[in-house]
């Protein structure tokens, strides 16, 4: 479905100090600063795969997606999406792909959702019968009926995301790119979105998701590609890397009284107790495959009176950081026991 070889993108920014004199000088002898956003990526994604594409901000994720969708032309390398060069055949490629940028909407702001979808029907030249059938297919999973008469600017974030997803899937694309599809959603809306994406996969649609949310990755994807500084530093099964590197969970306690020197490592073997910013705060870091959060709370309750607590799930950023810090050898699938 998606084949990329040696994909590279170098941006050229005018190296121009502010001020009129500098602008004039720039006109005479332009100088540019080059910035390599993506540095030679090879990627091969088959039909029906769901791939998480992750990495720290500025790693080149969105530039890759922009190249794969045809928005941006690669400086070097080859891309084929469904057999087409996405930039050269932008319009033909557009019919094969669906795109959702979670932080932006493609709906017409001042129009009811129904009118936006009708406009997209016209733009994609979807026959009326096919269009109605598609809306019927999307209705039960996205709950569109209630959204259709609402102006886009009056939708809640979760509703907006559902309507935008319908807009991205209207022409029944074979490849769908999702950029932060659950960002800003509440727990219920997030679960619904992930459920929908799983169903979408089952229909044979290829998914590529860029996200910072480990839940999105765990629940929707089976393959993860980690990017750093424009290069792929890991490409393999999600389970392998997650079990290996995303084990640590942390519980942050606020205690009723100062409790210096409290240590749960004897109660919970393998855990670490870390002092917080004052003597009433303390954090316990533990392996989520060995202990549960309940065990940690119970153990702490034996030592001190707990006023408040919060739990930190391992984040994909931690995973990426650890991969980058050299844990990558351990993370390779064949080394996982």
């Amino acid at each position: 479905m998606i084949e990329a070889r040696g994909l590279t993108k170098v941006f050229r920014r005018a190296d121009k100090p502010p001020g009129l004199a500098a602008s004039v000088r720039h006109l005479v002898r332009p100088r540019y600063a080059e910035h390599t956003a993506v540095a030679g990526i090879d990627l091969s994604i088959g039909a029906g795969e769901a791939v998480a594409y992750v990495g720290p901000n500025g790693a080149g994720k969105s530039t890759t997606v922009k190249m794969l969708t045809g928005i941006v032309h690669p400086t070097a390398g080859e891309i084929r999406v469904c057999g087409l060069d996405p930039h050269r055949n932008r319009h033909a490629n557009a019919r094969n792909i669906g795109v959702l940028f979670g932080q932006r909407t493609q709906l017409w702001w001042d129009l009811p959702v129904r009118d936006s979808l009708a406009l997209l029907r016209d733009i994609y030249r979807i026959p009326e019968r096919r269009y109605r059938a598609r809306l019927d297919e999307l209705e039960p999973v996205l709950g569109l009926a209630g959204l259709l008469p609402v102006l886009a600017r009056k939708l809640s974030l979760g509703q907006r995301m559902r309507a935008d997803l319908a807009a991205a899937l209207l022409h029944d694309p074979r490849v769908v790119y999702l950029d932060e599809p659950t960002i800003g959603l509440d727990v219920t809306a997030r679960d619904a979105m992930r459920g929908f994406l799983r169903d979408l996969r089952r229909t044979g649609t290829t998914l590529m998701i860029t996200t910072h949310d480990l839940g999105d990755i765990e629940e929707v994807c089976d393959r993860i590609v980690i990017l750093d500084a424009g290069r792929i530093i890991y490409d393999g099964p999600v389970t392998a890397i997650k079990d290996r590197l995303a084990r640590d969970r942390a519980v942050h306690f606020t205690l009723a009284d100062a409790c210096p020197g409290v240590d749960l490592s004897t109660d919970l073997p393998g855990s670490r107790t870390v002092a917080g910013e004052d003597e009433r705060r303390v954090s316990v870091v533990f392996d989520r495959f060995v202990h549960g959060a309940g065990d940690v709370l119970a153990a702490m309750a034996r030592h001190a009176r707990v006023v408040d607590l919060s739990i930190d799930e391992p984040s994909i950023d931690d995973v990426v950081r650890r991969v980058y810090a050299g844990a990558i050898g351990d993370a390779l699938p064949d080394r996982v026991r």
Binding site: K66, T69, G70, I71, R90, H91, A92, A94, R95, I97, V99, F101, R104, Q106, W108, L120, I123, Y124, R125
Partner: peptide, 21 residues
């Protein structure tokens, strides 16, 4: 505001989409 990106993944000339928006 990055609005061109969506227009570029649709099978219709970008300039016309902007002008008719």
């Amino acid at each position: 505001l990055g609005g061109l990106d969506y227009l570029m993944v649709r099978p219709y000339p970008v300039a016309l989409q902007v002008m008719g928006s």
